[in-house]
């Protein structure tokens, strides 16, 4: 599946792997790829516009930035409520991820929300407020005990 041209691929690869904290970070990519800084910036802007890049930004460690209590919470939401539930959950600041998922046999919780809170009380309040809006949806809270791995997918090698 070839969705992007060679020049774009080269730039995105460097952007993914070699984006340094420095005065002119795009200049480094330009030197590496044999393009000009303007060309690199234009290619990245285009990739954003095309939606290949979802966003450019930072990844933080929630535990070190004020979110010590995290839980994957899965909800059993009937088909006719999936969209309204998903949209309501997406609006909550403390929810970073929300997906409707296919369930294996015997598993009833189809909507998965990743909830981040400063402490247990805040976590419980977030869950309670969503549950009060959808009282017909049972849920399962799976508190994060330990991060075993967290990396970024290397799409360009």
């Amino acid at each position: 599946m070839k969705i992007i041209d060679e020049r774009t691929e080269k730039v995105l690869k460097e952007f993914q792997n070699n984006f340094k904290i420095e005065t002119r970070p795009f200049k480094r990519i330009a030197v590496k790829t044999g393009l000009t800084e303007e060309e690199v910036i234009a290619i990245i802007a285009k990739a954003k516009e095309d939606g290949i890049i979802r966003r450019v930004g930072i990844g933080v460690r929630p535990a070190l930035t004020g979110f010590g209590m995290n839980a994957l919470t899965a909800w059993s939401v009937p088909p006719d409520k999936v969209d309204s539930f998903g949209e309501a959950a997406a609006e909550i600041q403390n929810i970073s991820h929300c997906y409707d998922r296919e369930c294996p046999e015997g598993w009833i919780y189809n909507i998965f929300t990743m909830i981040h809170a400063s402490d247990r009380e805040e976590l419980e309040n977030i869950i309670k407020s969503l549950s009060e809006r959808f009282p017909e949806c049972p849920y399962k809270v799976m508190e994060t005990l330990k991060e075993l791995k967290k990396t970024s997918m290397k799409y360009f090698k």
């Binding site: 599946m1 993914q16 984006f19 904290i21 290949i52 890049i53 070190l64 799409y155």
Partner: peptide
């Protein structure tokens, strides 16, 4: 970054647009 508060600076790709699909 040294303190570990920031773990990454850079692009986040749309995996579906790049032909990837994910599962939990």
């Amino acid at each position: 970054m040294q303190d570990g508060k920031i773990r990454y600076v850079g692009p986040y790709f749309n995996s579906a647009k790049l032909g990837y699909s994910g599962q939990l």
